[in-house]
Design a protein around this nucleic acid. Structure first.
Lengths: 158, 158
DNA sequence: CATACACGATACTTTTAATGTTACGTGATA
DNA sequence: TATCACGTAACATTAAAAGTATCGTGTATG
């Protein structure tokens, strides 16, 4: 027992493809906040190293949630539609589909076997607590704070 | 901001295929603890609703860690090789390969873009803390405690 | 009003890791 | 020696995110 906890991401030496929708949207939103006028899906896609269709697909959730707006035609693109103070990282997570957070979990949540149910109960308890922490932390940070962190980081680099 | 946290597993209505190696191995180990003599990979596979090759593949990690032993030939199979008090859920997690815990994460951990790095820093901080909690909780529970929980649950059902 | 622009949406393909499956080898026991 | 049980390699399947091609719709501009 009692092995030491390794930090996040140190378990595998190969590259793991995580769900990066939250991370990407945060990246985009901060850029949009520092950008005059609309940003096109093409420009955003180049920023993210991906495809405009992926951008539209992912940002659709943000639009439906009212965090951004999209305009068609000449001079169109994406603009921020809600003050950054009013949007938390959790809001963005939810807006992009609120994907599952954990890669591990029980095989069969509704097991017949009593032993399996006992295992599930224990694991689910642990996962629930970690999820609560994660969501609380994401909910406690607004896009505005994230932007301020970035500005502070830039100033520190001077 | 301030949306309420939904409990674990409630975000999706379709079935999500999690990495179930930890959960499965805990299930198996508790059964083995309550079982006289070796259990064959075939019997375990029937218990888990899977294939004996999957069982051998996954249990290989437990064997290499010294938590179980395997015997060939007539009357062979898998037996527990270490007291349940000495093995934590975290030990089992590590023994099955210590798979990644989170399904979300940054797209590109080593970004050139300063905005992206700021996002990554924030997200990684949250994930690191949640991971620390998760690993600490897994490390704090031994297989023996899990087995006792199960016994208590059974007694309560009388 | 015609044209280029930009999003909206659909229908795919690709990718990755876990899981499932088949087949064959090795050692142990009756 | 025949059967049992694990060890291993190789390959197929699956699921979700991500990538891609293509078309439709609305919009501003010349």
């Amino acid at each position: 027992m009692g092995a030491l906890a390794k930090p996040y991401g140190s378990m595998k030496d190969h590259v793991v493809r995580n769900d990066s929708r939250l991370s990407r949207m945060l990246h985009v939103l901060l850029h949009m906040a520092r950008h005059e006028g609309p940003m096109t899906s093409d420009a955003i896609a180049r920023m993210l190293g991906t495809n405009p269709v992926v951008v539209r697909r992912t940002m659709a959730g943000l639009r439906d949630a009212g965090y951004v707006r999209s305009e068609k035609g000449h001079g169109g693109g994406w603009v921020i539609a809600k003050p950054l103070e009013k949007v938390s990282l959790l809001d963005v997570h939810r807006a992009v589909g609120g994907p599952r957070l954990f890669a591990i979990g029980p095989e069969n949540p509704k097991a017949d076997c009593a032993v399996e149910r006992a295992v599930n109960t224990a694991l689910e308890g642990v996962l629930r607590d970690a999820e609560a922490l994660l969501l609380a932390r994401l909910g406690a940070v607004s896009l505005a704070e994230l932007a301020r962190d970035f500005d502070a980081y830039c100033d520190a680099a001077d």
